[in-house]
Design a protein around this nucleic acid. Structure first.
Lengths: 226, 226
DNA sequence: ATTTAACATATGTGATACCATTTGTGAACT
DNA sequence: AGTTCACAAATGGTATCACATATGTTAAAT
């Protein structure tokens, strides 16, 4: 298993750095669904004792990113078609909600920042750098929702991202086949016009086209090939 | 501080029992907003070493039920009017979504079970047993959303409950002043009729009237008295 | 009397040790 | 060859200890 390192912020506890590393790895899909994890294995892989690893893993289990089996062993959950549909539906509901409640707080400065992220995404797409694409896409959405000063839904949204993450890698390869219209451009237009309805529409389309269709295809293909 | 004990399920780890106890205490509002917590304090209060307590507390911090301060100390977050409005709005969105997606899986058996819970709530209201009322209300909603076999939003919903919990105690006393129409009866009627629109409406009204109005009043009163 | 400095106490963090349980392996048996 | 049993290794769970940092307190200095 390959858990990418992350820039080490000093003055951070080991537990938090393990948490950040695992979270990142899961979110970009580095760890395959069904992978079994062990405290000691992870600890050794990161050169730490099991103690901080346990705390990080427990946190991720509470975010439903890691599944605790009845044997007290841990694994990255498998994806099923039913669960996938529910997760995408929840993602749409949560992100449309978050976008709607962010609009009143949007500034031209933030719109400019979002445009820059979107341009970087175009480049990542040309380079076919899928990890980068995933990260930037999440950054785009997170920044939008975070302009709401009392924002409370990003954690819930990220939990959904975490649950879709391991499955992401299989899906993202297909994105180019499906993602014809750039919905981020539509989101930006809606933001500039302060148009709630258009914003909600664009957000929903972005999510649906970005992963829903291709994800469903991958899952149904897997079913037929088995 | 008073952290109620919970029925001890054997074959459960200490970490999980601490987690369950703290979670329950927070959710019914036993612990006041702003309370400072310490690992060793909690450990001593529960007769355990700090290790399992740390893991439980970390999980709750990832669910935004416990706040980790920059000093590495922990506290139950204070409530503000802005955060409260956001939490209620998120609760409405999530629970309306969950209810909608549960309806197709509803059976007469479950409707009967829900009716029983609702009747127990009527009794708790007569007895003015507010803790029991809170627990039963949560059980009612959780059971409804859980009939969806691929359900993935209950954890997100419970995270919101956790964040509203500490503030709950101040609010729930007022509920009688505001909660005139029994929306649970409306929910049951909508379920029996398999009427999506009515179900979503009743769910939203239930949440709004159950806590939103009285909560906002408490918060604005606090602001003026300070 | 107020502020500052020094010291004692309390707290969070992480490594280690020990135990119970589970998993893995290999030999004996059918 | 397949199954079963016994033993070894691995793993999770918790307590304890050591260390660094933060907090609280007391005494000295202004």
């Amino acid at each position: 298993m390959n858990i990418p390192e992350l820039p080490v912020d000093h003055d951070i506890t080991d537990q938090e750095s393990v948490y950040a590393r695992l979270r990142h790895a899961i979110m970009v899909g580095t760890i395959e669904p069904g992978t079994n994890l062990t405290m000691r294995g992870l600890a050794e892989a990161m050169g730490l004792s099991p103690t901080p690893v346990r705390e990080a893993v427990r946190r991720l289990s509470s975010e439903n990113a890691i599944e605790i089996l009845p044997n007290r062993r841990m694994a990255i959950p498998e994806m099923t078609l039913g669960r996938f549909e529910e997760l995408v539906a929840l993602r749409v509901t949560l992100e449309v909600h978050a976008a709607e409640r962010s609009l009143p707080y949007i500034s031209d400065y933030v719109i400019e920042k979002l445009k820059e992220i979107d341009e970087a995404m175009d480049e990542a797409l040309r380079e076919e750098n899928l990890d980068k694409l995933t990260i930037l896409n999440q950054r785009f959405h997170r920044m939008l929702y975070s302009v709401n000063p009392n924002q409370v839904c990003v954690p819930a949204i990220e939990s959904v991202w975490l649950q879709l993450g391991p499955f992401q890698r299989q899906v993202v390869k297909r994105v180019k086949e499906f993602y014809k219209i750039d919905r981020h451009k539509e989101i930006l237009t809606a933001l500039r016009a302060r148009d709630v309805a258009a914003l909600m529409n664009a957000t929903e389309s972005d999510i649906r086209e970005g992963s829903s269709r291709s994800g469903r295809l991958v899952l149904t293909e897997n079913l037929t090939t088995r």
